[in-house]
Amino acid sequence: MDDPVTFARKLRREQTLPERRFWGLVRPWREAGLHWRRQAPIGPYVVDFVCKARNLIVEIDGDTHYSEAGLAHDESRTAYLAERGHRVLRFTNSEVTQGGEGVYTVLMGVLGEPGAER
Rank of each mutant, 00 (worst) to 15 (best):
T64R: 11
L34F: 01
G70D: 05
E113R: 13
I60C: 05
G24A: 11
Q15L: 13
G24C: 12
R21P: 03
E59C: 04
V58T: 00
R87Q: 12
A53N: 03
H65L: 03
E95F: 00
Y104W: 14
D48L: 11
R30W: 09
P114R: 06
G109R: 05
L89P: 00
R118G: 15
T97F: 01
R9Q: 13
E101R: 10
R21H: 07
T6C: 07
E31M: 11
R13I: 08
F7K: 11
G43W: 01
Q15P: 10
R54Q: 14
T78L: 04
L56I: 03
L11Q: 14
S76T: 07
G115F: 12
Y104Q: 12
R84V: 08
E31V: 07
Q39W: 13
Y80I: 10
D74G: 02
H86M: 09
F49W: 08
P41M: 09
F7V: 10
T64C: 01
R87Y: 03
E19D: 09
N55I: 00
R84N: 08
D2A: 10
L71S: 05
A69S: 08
P28T: 11
H35V: 10
L111T: 00
Y45H: 12
V47M: 08
F49I: 03
F22L: 08
S67R: 08
R90P: 02
E31Y: 05
I57P: 04
P18D: 14
E83A: 12
A72Y: 06
T16C: 15
D63R: 08
K52D: 10
Q98E: 15
H65R: 02
E14H: 15
V96M: 05
R20G: 07
V26G: 07
D61I: 13
E117A: 14
T16F: 12
V58M: 04
R21C: 12
D48V: 08
L107D: 08
T64D: 13
P28W: 10
R37A: 09
K52I: 11
P44V: 13
S67N: 07
F7P: 03
V5Y: 07
K52M: 13
V47Q: 06
D61R: 03
G115C: 14
E83H: 13
T16Y: 09
G102V: 00
P28E: 06
R118I: 11
R84D: 02
F49R: 07
A32G: 10
P28L: 10
A79L: 14
Q39G: 12
F49K: 06
M108E: 12
E59L: 10
P18N: 08
M108P: 01
D48P: 03
P114H: 01
K52R: 14
R21T: 10
T105I: 00
C51K: 05
W36M: 09
S76V: 15
V26F: 03
V103K: 05
P4M: 10
L81P: 03
A8E: 12
W23H: 13
P44E: 06
D3G: 12
D63K: 07
